[in-house]
Design a protein around this nucleic acid. Structure first.
Length: 104
DNA sequence: CTCCTGACGTCCC
DNA sequence: CGGGACGCCAGGA
């Protein structure tokens, strides 16, 4: 039982399959907060655990919003998941964006 | 109760 | 194309 909105967000993020990525807005929309993209990021920042594939969460620009420090870590983790970055350190959302939003 | 902040998104200039 | 500002939700002081 989702005691807080975080629970829902965490749950959704955990549903992200390997090799796929999701944007804050997308997750927010799936959680029911289409305009609460910030809340998603805030939840992740507040959360501290390895059970959450936070590295699969990126911004609408297909890039990590984190500082270089965590950004580097995130990039490394994503590369391990078969995700590639372009010269601009951006991810090809057309190929790696999680289509779980369709909940097919 | 009010003000501020935050791993975003989108519009406006 | 780049930068600035507002809006969104939730929590902490």
């Amino acid at each position: 039982m989702p005691a807080s909105a975080f629970e829902k967000i965490y749950k959704i993020i955990r549903r992200i399959p390997k090799g796929k990525v999701a944007t804050y807005g997308q997750i927010a929309a799936m959680a029911g907060y289409e305009r609460g993209a910030r809340t998603v990021g805030w939840a992740l920042n507040y959360h501290s655990g390895d059970d959450l594939p936070w590295h699969r969460v990126i911004n609408a620009g297909g890039k990590s919003s984190l500082p270089e420090g965590r950004g580097q870590l995130q990039k490394a983790l994503l590369e391990i998941e078969d995700i590639v970055f372009d010269q601009q350190d951006r991810i090809d959302l057309k190929k790696y964006l999680w289509n779980g939003i369709q909940r097919k």
